[in-house]
Simulated scan of single mutants.
Amino acid sequence: MSAHELAAEMEELLLRIVPGLSEQWQGASPETIAHIERLAGRPLPPFYLWFLRRMGRCMGALAYPSLDFSAERILRCYAEKTIHPDPRFLLIGYESDEMMPLHLFYDFDAPARDDALVTERYANGGELHDRFETLSEMLAWGALLKFRVNTMPQRCEGMLSCDDPDLLSQLDPVMFSLGFTKPITTGPRCGLYERNDAVLICERTPREELLGNQAFTLGGRDAGVLRRLLGRLTTESSLEVEVDEWTPALG
């Protein structure tokens, strides 16, 4: 899939599920984007260029509570030497929580699908805490969680597992047969599935070995819809389902 096609998928998804986004998001100027590219010391990933052009100034309702993805904040952190330029890492999200100030960085040593791996670390370095294989997957996963799954009357979360390391190759056929679609194209570590009455999202930490299990969160119209879906997954595939929590709790 080309960078243009991925951006088109992402734009369709976000404008469809995030209320008022088309009036709220604001892109960064070409000069600002060029400044960030100079700090990176390399061409920016095509998806990040789309992100900056669409919402590099304001993410509207898509904004994260304590993470600032704005180009202005990124440039300020480098100008104030809070973050120092690094050929491998580029700051893309500033964490304002002083208790755990793990900022978001691109890791250019792990490019993927016209994008790059998103990891967390402190400003001065230290241990990496990988989040998603790409920024596009992080944004889509977060948007579906906030604006679809968490708005559903019934939710559950747990673990999917199977003998096949590529779990999504087992999950895809069942989900498609049940009328679900994938709003964006993802890699093997992030599954996103939508239907009018239910949404399932699952993910596995990048760089870890694919071991045939992924954490999932599922939202739906009612508990019956979710139970039927989970039942079909176990009877029509080699997948095993372990539910850890129902919200609200089932009686």
Rank of each mutant, 00 (worst) to 15 (best):
I92V: 12
E80S: 10
L75H: 01
T186Y: 03
L75P: 00
L139G: 03
R148G: 00
A110E: 15
R148S: 12
P87D: 06
M55C: 11
A3H: 12
L128C: 07
P248S: 11
L52S: 05
M100S: 10
L135D: 02
G60I: 05
L52G: 01
S237P: 09
F216M: 03
G158C: 04
A198Q: 08
R88S: 06
G41W: 08
R38Q: 14
L13N: 07
R113D: 13
D164A: 14
Y106S: 02
E209M: 07
A215K: 13
S66C: 07
A61C: 12
A140L: 08
L117Q: 05
S70N: 02
H4K: 12
I33Q: 05
G179M: 06
E203W: 13
V225Q: 02
G224W: 11
M55P: 00
T185D: 04
L168P: 03
R232Y: 15
G179H: 03
L52W: 04
N196C: 12
L239R: 00
F108E: 00
S238F: 05
E240G: 15
L210F: 06
L233G: 01
S29G: 04
L117V: 07
S96R: 15
D107A: 11
E72F: 03
E120C: 11
N213I: 09
V225W: 04
C58M: 13
C190G: 06
D130S: 12
R227N: 05
A61Q: 15
L91F: 06
E157G: 14
I74K: 11
A3I: 09
W141N: 14
P206C: 04
M175L: 14
L44K: 07
Q170L: 11
C77E: 13
M175K: 01
L62I: 03
R57D: 15
V118K: 02
I33Y: 02
F216A: 02
A63S: 14
L6I: 08
L200R: 03
P85N: 10
D130Q: 09
P173Q: 07
A7Q: 03
H103T: 01
Y94F: 13
E127V: 07
L104S: 03
E240A: 13
E209Q: 07
L75Q: 05
E127F: 09
S136Q: 08
W246V: 05
G27W: 05
P111W: 05
P153K: 07
N213P: 09
E194V: 13
L210G: 05
G60L: 10
I74N: 02
L200V: 07
L218C: 06
A215F: 10
I201A: 13
G212V: 06
E240N: 12
L128V: 03
F47R: 00
L6Q: 11
R204D: 10
P165R: 09
P45W: 13
R207I: 15
F51M: 07
L230K: 09
N213L: 09
L171M: 06
L192W: 02
L128M: 14
L167V: 08
L39V: 11
A140C: 13
S177H: 14
L167A: 06
F51G: 01
Y64I: 04
E245N: 14
G41L: 09
Y106V: 08
D166L: 15
R195L: 04
